[in-house]
Design a binder for these strands. Structure first.
Lengths: 125, 125
DNA sequence: TTATATCTACGAATGATTTCGTATACAAAT
DNA sequence: ATTTGTATACGAAATCATTCGTAGATATAA
């Protein structure tokens, strides 16, 4: 299975692919340029590499190729999360949670969601 | 302000510096080699670069230089967390919290801590 | 004192990622 | 039909991170 760590640039593109289903390179590029200066062929190349690596699939029947993410957002996030917790919080996921909770203005709904989740976890034992 | 993103290797070293106060290169290296194969001069070079970048400070009065982290663990973690949330969870810290909570076996104590924190947040409004 | 060990400094090889120029093909507009 | 715009492919430059060899200085042991 995918030992494929997406690079940072690839991740940016994955996010766009996740958010807006199957899209052409041009579409991804337009969004990208609103965030940073980058040439079209750079975006293109990256997406081609992603296709090679199996991070994205593409439909090449038409001249304008259509790309779609080949790995799921959740699975990828979990992988990256694990690595991040390990690397930055020395393995303590709870420390991370505390920090994330403490620093961000969570809405009432979100806090309720979290409480509900905790309930669920507690009941499962 | 530090626009200085520590690289992965630098982060590994920072963790050691955070955990064991001011230490010589050799000390950091010893710990590093238990985790991965790496030459002494590699560690040295990295730490020298970190000193240049302002990620670490060093006392060079003696032949054996003593290094200490120049940026705080909390501040760094927060920065990295922000970037990570942005990069991987499209800015939704709550989504990250849910995922971290959902997937890791949190102890009863930890869950209690989180509940307490949520209480605190709710009362603050 | 001489040899051995241990340190820093430095430069450069290696490797991975990102960037973009150029060639080429096709489509659309004039 | 010719020009103009927009695609892909590809190679290679530029950048960044990591790695290590070697030189030179200083301490330690024999």
């Amino acid at each position: 299975m995918s030992i494929n760590k997406p690079t940072e640039s690839e991740l940016e593109i994955l996010q766009i692919l996740w958010e807006h289903g199957p899209v052409p390179v041009r579409f991804v590029h337009e969004i990208l340029v609103t965030k940073k200066a980058v040439g079209y062929t750079t975006t293109l190349k990256l997406m081609q590499i992603m296709a090679e690596k199996g991070l994205a699939n593409r439909d090449t029947t038409n001249r304008t190729h259509i790309y779609i993410a080949a790995i799921s957002e959740e699975q990828t996030q979990q992988q990256l999360l694990d690595r991040f917790v390990e690397g930055t919080f020395r393995g303590s996921a709870m420390k991370l949670v505390m920090q994330a909770l403490g620093n961000n203005t969570a809405s009432k709904e979100e806090l309720d969601q979290i409480k509900a989740l905790i309930q669920k976890i507690e009941n499962e034992e």
